[in-house]
Design a protein around this nucleic acid. Structure first.
Lengths: 122, 122
DNA sequence: TCATCGTATGCCCATATCGGCATGCGTCAA
DNA sequence: TTGACGCATGCCGATATGGGCATACGATGA
């Protein structure tokens, strides 16, 4: 249970370290996508996505730990709901490259220089 | 070297499987960010980001394999340049949640229903 | 030709993953 | 109280990671 203590070697960052890591897993993305339609109990999600219940629970745990998802007790069930705010930083970071994927690569150098010149405008 | 052969157990998807996985690593994000300013040789990047050369090379390899970066031979050096197109899908996927992080959570249910009603407009 | 620079890799380590299965546990209904 | 249901966890296995270090390799320059 190392919060973040790496003295020596290191493996990949925990999936629970941040949204970037959490959404690296396709099934977790699927869950989030599904949750846009509203809250859902675990079994429901599992079934809809064709995964075992434990599997769904584990993915939900990760999403919960990075704050992309919320739980609400409802009798026997636990309703999971989306909390997309954590995706905002991701969107912003990736958005920082928007100008680049709109440019063909041949023009990139020129473009970069141009960017450099007009940097103040940002 | 399993391309994608999982018969039994499974670990996390390879970092080289797609952009989502590639950008899950902070240092790789740093590299990409730096590359926006233009092409750079490995040692340069390593130094600027305070990492060893082998480390930089390894991260660049991953970025290369998912197509987020390009290499160009330049004498002894290898110039790495950004190829942001692979980030587009990521941006789009995350963008699909934009409406949600703009809404406070209390209003979410209402919002979802509203979304449901006006779905055609999208 | 040979030394050197710039890189890519291989190998080893410690760790985290994701999956399955079995099981623990709390809630609700008989 | 007892069962059943809904879900969270623990444990194991196979695998990939990211880092360090040493090293192999290609290109250039002396």
């Amino acid at each position: 249970m190392p919060i973040w203590a790496y003295d020596d070697a290191m493996a990949r960052a925990a999936t629970t370290s941040d949204a970037f890591n959490a959404i690296a897993e396709p099934q977790r993305r699927d869950i989030l996508a599904l949750l846009r339609a509203g809250e859902r109990p675990v079994t429901d999600l599992a079934q809809e996505l064709g995964m075992s219940q434990p599997r769904a629970s584990k993915h939900l745990r990760v999403l919960r730990e990075v704050g992309l998802v919320r739980v609400r007790e409802a009798g026997k069930q636990r309703l999971y709901g989306l909390d997309a705010q954590g995706l905002r930083p991701v969107h912003e970071w990736v958005g920082g490259f928007e100008r680049f994927w709109n440019e063909s690569f041949d023009r990139l150098d020129t473009y970069v220089q141009d960017l450099e010149r007009t940097r103040q405008e940002d």
